[in-house]
Write a protein that binds this DNA or RNA. Structure first.
Lengths: 192, 192
DNA sequence: CGCGGACTAGATAGATCGCTCTAGCGGACG
DNA sequence: CGTCCGCTAGAGCGATCTATCTAGTCCGCG
């Protein structure tokens, strides 16, 4: 076993949150799937489910942003980056029977009105995505304020398309959203 | 008591689903807030929580679409309709401490991978929104295929903005999304 | 008047929830 | 070698979950 117990718990929880959400995921389920004893969970996360949840949200957010960065770095320009990212998201969605979309969106909606610490964690993740994507757009020459708005738009249309695509079990919405986001970035760069 | 027990159960459940989601809402909580006895719930919804859930999803979806129609009918043109709808959504969100956004989005993400009947209910609602909004765009002169894509885009960016706005407790995303959706409809109508 | 179906009413079952508790293992360090 | 301590291990607690069950109430209709 090369991975640590804590890592396995985090990995499994992230996976379950994506599919079943926060309230839909039980601690018993987590320790079972992670092959971890119950005591270890409360050793590593003394604050219980909320403690674990907060760490998983931040970690999943960071990892998903790194995926975006990897795709963006591999693309020749920001326009292609956006196109590739949406195409990749659609492919993953199809490959996982429409289970793996945004790692934190389900949880974000669930906890928005039920847990301030968890809501703040999701807010921090989204804000980090916005500032990160925005910075890349600024590097490409887009003005600061426009860059932020474009980043928000990009993330919003992605998240919304995830909702529609998972519900419909179809990538149609993701494709439409991808085309719109691509076009928006292209327009912003043309205007320079 | 002018309302029937069944109506009160449906109303209360719709409200709770919006805030706490499907798994986050308990049947005890529903009957308590609806001032209804437990037995009545299973009388009106023999299939239990799933049965109730499906009816609430379809009903909430219908009512939310009627709200859209009302705003759209009151607006002088489709462009203003979209602007007004996003502005209204932002106002409601602020007034309810960022609790009342889309009535079915949270549930849609929760059930997408856990309950086929419920997933289908959410898919039907979204599809009805798409075809409804699309039909209005066709009436305004937009081509059929472009109208559907524009409708999907409109709903996706709205749903995504709801996620970001609820998480951040800020209407910024909703405003950015509203501007983008407004601009997209304007562009489609100019191209005629 | 009385029968019958729709509905109300709530106790209770059985499972599962998050969480706490004590016990034991095993490597690091004096 | 022995003592700690981080971690593993899982039984079990009270609360809550969905769902079932029986009993009682109300009202329309013959």
């Amino acid at each position: 076993m090369t991975t640590t117990t804590k890592q396995r718990i985090l990995d499994v929880t992230a996976d379950l949150f994506r599919r079943y959400g926060y309230t839909g995921t039980g601690l018993k389920q987590i320790v079972t799937e992670a092959n971890a004893p119950f005591g270890s969970l409360y050793h590593h996360f003394p604050g219980g489910k909320q403690d674990l949840g907060a760490e998983v949200i931040r970690r999943s957010g960071r990892m998903y942003y790194e995926l975006f960065e990897a795709i963006a770095d591999a693309a020749p320009d920001p326009v292609t980056a956006v196109t590739d990212f949406f195409a990749g998201a659609a492919e993953v969605l199809r490959a996982t029977d429409y289970a793996d979309a945004c790692p934190i969106a389900t949880v974000a909606l669930e906890v928005a009105s039920t847990s301030e610490p968890l809501r703040e964690a999701t807010a921090e993740v989204f804000e980090s995505w916005i500032t990160g994507a925005s910075a890349r757009l600024v590097d490409a020459g887009v003005g600061g304020e426009e860059a932020r708005e474009l980043a928000i738009f990009f993330i919003a249309v992605l998240e919304g398309a995830f909702v529609l695509s998972r519900a419909a079990k179809s990538t149609e919405a993701l494709e439409v959203a991808g085309a719109a986001a691509t076009e928006a970035v292209r327009a912003a760069l043309v205007d320079l």
